[in-house]
Nucleic acid binder design. Structure first.
Lengths: 121, 121
DNA sequence: ATAACAGTTGAACAGATATTCAACCGTTCA
DNA sequence: TGAACGGTTGAATATCTGTTCAACTGTTAT
């Protein structure tokens, strides 16, 4: 047994031509990282609950916290993530901060996921 | 200051009617958890790289490992997750195991995300 | 049979992440 | 002015998750 062989298949690729063809067709690393980043935002049940709420109506932080039985702090932390990724927008009115969905794509992607899951069952 | 007040806004909801209306419209918890679960699968750059590769062509584990400069073990672990969530399917042929996308929805959701990101820039 | 290879698996480790807690900011209203 | 409230923030904690490592299975070929 070769002691120091890395388990990466570098030299002994099974189908080199396929690998090269696919490599050429792949989106660049940055784009793929962005895709993963976007989906990661949706990949948490707290955030999907917030989003499905905002899908129905604009809401302030306290109302969202009440709806989801969570602390305002926890909700605010998640809203910050949704803000940073441009998924939600907000407006201030007096003491309250109202959040709503920022982008139509979000709704389309979300709906498509629900579709996918319902057809599965 | 009320010492034991939980920071949840239970009693002092700001807009009770809105909360109740949204609560009635929300999908059930299980569905929302499934949505989050599905997106979580896409929320990792290794898995999105694997998926975008399979988007181009069926591939065996060793080729994917070579393409992504990863160990077969690491790739196999991620493929297990993609298998369990029915995102990819596989067929065995001799020593090799060939993976491919299992569902058209996956491609549509993935494409939609790319669309979203390209319009953003 | 046995060596070589493709692939899988479980345990262990390291890095990421969601919630809690406490302190804080800004606005309203008494 | 200052108390009350909506909301934010940073640090700490507990949990989750991806990769590594080593051992293993099953198939091919000598």
């Amino acid at each position: 047994m070769k002691a120091v062989e890395k388990d990466v298949c570098e030299s002994d690729v099974v189908h080199e031509s396929v690998v090269e063809r696919v490599r050429a067709a792949l989106p660049d690393e940055d784009t793929l990282a962005d895709v993963a980043e976007l989906f990661k935002v949706f990949g948490d049940s707290t955030r999907t609950r917030i989003l499905s709420a905002l899908f129905e109506s604009e809401m302030c932080v306290c109302d969202i916290a009440s709806l989801l039985s969570m602390t305002k702090s926890a909700v605010s932390h998640q809203l910050r993530i949704l803000r940073q990724t441009k998924v939600v927008k907000f407006r201030k009115q007096g003491k309250e901060v109202y959040y709503s969905l920022d982008d139509d794509h979000i709704s389309r992607i979300y709906k498509m996921a629900l579709e996918h899951l319902s057809e599965e069952k």
